[in-house]
Amino acid sequence: MTVRKHQYFYTYDTVGSFLRPEKLKQAYGQVESGEISPEEFTEIQHDATKELVKKEIAHGLHVVSDGEYNRKNFFIDFLAGLKGVKVVPNGFKLNFSGQELVDDGLKLVGKIGYNPEHRFFTDYGFLQSIIPADVQAKVTIPAPTPLLFEGEFSVISNYRDFYTSREEYLADILKAYQQTVAHFYELGLRYLQLDDPWLLGVTLPIAGMQGNENGERVEKLENEIVSVIQQIIETAPEDMIIATHICRGNFHSASLGGGTYASITNVLQQLPYDAFFMEYDDMQADGDFEPLAKIHRAQPQAVFVLGLVTTKSAQLEAKQDLQHKILQAMDVVPLHNLSLSPQCGFASTKEGNDLNEKQQWDKIDLVVQTARDTWKTDACRFD
Rank of each mutant, 00 (worst) to 15 (best):
H6S: 10
Q7G: 09
F9Q: 07
R20V: 14
R20A: 10
P21D: 11
K23T: 07
K25D: 06
A27S: 10
V31L: 13
S33T: 15
G34E: 07
G34W: 10
E40A: 15
K50L: 13
E51C: 06
E56N: 07
E56T: 05
H59I: 04
H62D: 09
H62W: 08
H62I: 14
S65H: 12
Y69D: 01
K83P: 08
V88M: 09
K93C: 03
D103E: 15
V109T: 13
G110P: 12
R119K: 15
T122D: 13
F126A: 11
L127T: 01
I131Q: 02
P132M: 10
V135I: 15
T140S: 11
T145Q: 03
L148V: 12
E150R: 05
I156N: 01
T164Q: 12
E167R: 14
L174C: 08
Q179D: 09
V181G: 00
F184D: 01
Y185W: 09
Y191W: 12
L192Y: 04
P197V: 05
V202C: 05
A207Y: 01
M209I: 06
Q210M: 15
G211C: 14
N223K: 15
I229N: 06
A236C: 11
I242D: 01
I242S: 05
A243L: 04
T244P: 00
H245P: 02
I246Y: 00
N250S: 13
H252R: 15
S255P: 02
L256R: 00
L256Q: 05
Y261S: 04
I264H: 02
L268C: 09
A275H: 03
Y280N: 09
D281E: 06
Q284Y: 07
F289S: 01
L292V: 11
A293I: 12
H296E: 05
A298T: 15
P300G: 08
F304R: 00
G307D: 02
K312Y: 12
L322P: 00
Q323T: 12
M330P: 03
D331K: 15
D331T: 14
P334F: 13
L335Y: 04
L335C: 05
L335G: 03
N337A: 07
Q343F: 10
T349H: 09
N353R: 13
L355I: 14
E357I: 14
Q360P: 04
I364P: 00
V368Q: 03
T370P: 07
T374I: 09
W375T: 11
D383Y: 06
